[in-house]
Simulated scan of single mutants.
Amino acid sequence: MSQPVAVRLDKWLWAARFFKTRSLAVTAIEAGHVHLGGERAKPARQLKPGDTLRILAPHGEFEVEVLALSEQRGPAETARQLYRETEASQAARERRREEQALAPQFDHPDVRGRPTKKWRRQLQSFERGQD
């Protein structure tokens, strides 16, 4: 099967596994989370090998160069061969991941949903300064 000359941007993002569905890809493109060559793109924009994309997906921000085209979603190994992420983008994602791991967590392990009667009384006692 021959490789297509140009592919719609939303189809390629879906095939490259940046988004789980084409409709999520279209929503992200329309919201301005995908830039082609430094400019906002439209879902039907034709993508060619050599184009550069900046993608803000739920799992991170990527800056990639398109290496190959595909209209079909395949295995993850095949999807990774469709693009090459820039080294600056990889370093920035790694730095964000480290910052997030080092950020303080303010969630109390016992608090899920509504407080229990005991927990509420402890909170009220603390707020009044009695304890």
Rank of each mutant, 00 (worst) to 15 (best):
M1F: 10
S2A: 10
Q3K: 13
Q3N: 10
P4C: 09
P4V: 09
V5R: 12
V7F: 09
V7Y: 08
L9H: 09
D10A: 07
K11Y: 09
K11D: 10
W12T: 10
W12H: 10
L13R: 08
W14L: 08
W14P: 04
W14T: 08
A15N: 06
A15H: 05
F18D: 01
F18Q: 02
F19C: 06
K20N: 04
K20C: 02
T21K: 08
T21D: 04
R22E: 03
S23K: 12
S23G: 07
L24W: 02
L24G: 01
L24K: 05
A25Q: 04
V26K: 00
V26I: 00
V26T: 01
T27D: 12
T27Y: 04
I29R: 01
I29E: 00
I29W: 00
E30G: 00
G32E: 04
G32C: 06
G32H: 05
H33C: 08
V34A: 08
H35P: 03
L36V: 12
L36E: 07
G37N: 01
G37L: 01
G38L: 01
R40P: 11
R40I: 10
A41D: 04
K42S: 10
P43L: 02
A44Y: 07
A44H: 11
A44C: 07
Q46A: 15
Q46V: 09
Q46I: 08
L47A: 08
K48S: 12
K48P: 05
G50M: 03
G50L: 02
D51P: 02
T52C: 06
L53S: 02
I55S: 05
L56I: 14
H59D: 15
E61T: 14
E61W: 07
E61Y: 06
E61L: 10
E61H: 11
E61F: 07
F62C: 00
V66C: 04
L67M: 14
L67N: 12
A68D: 12
S70G: 11
S70M: 11
E71F: 09
Q72C: 08
R73C: 05
G74Y: 06
G74A: 14
P75H: 12
P75R: 14
A76S: 14
E77A: 15
E77N: 12
E77Q: 14
A79W: 07
R80D: 13
L82K: 11
L82R: 11
Y83W: 13
R84L: 12
T86A: 05
A88N: 08
S89K: 01
S89P: 02
Q90N: 09
Q90D: 06
E94Q: 15
R96S: 01
R97N: 05
E98A: 15
E98T: 11
E98C: 08
E99N: 06
Q100M: 10
Q100V: 06
Q100A: 14
A101L: 13
L102P: 06
L102K: 15
P104N: 07
Q105L: 13
F106P: 09
D107P: 03
H108I: 05
H108L: 10
D110A: 14
D110P: 04
V111K: 12
R112V: 14
G113C: 03
R114E: 11
R114H: 10
R114L: 12
K117E: 00
K117C: 00
W119P: 02
W119Q: 15
W119H: 14
R120E: 00
R120N: 00
R120H: 01
R120P: 01
R121A: 00
Q122S: 05
L123H: 11
S125I: 08
S125E: 14
S125A: 15
S125G: 15
E127Y: 12
R128T: 01
R128K: 03
D131S: 13
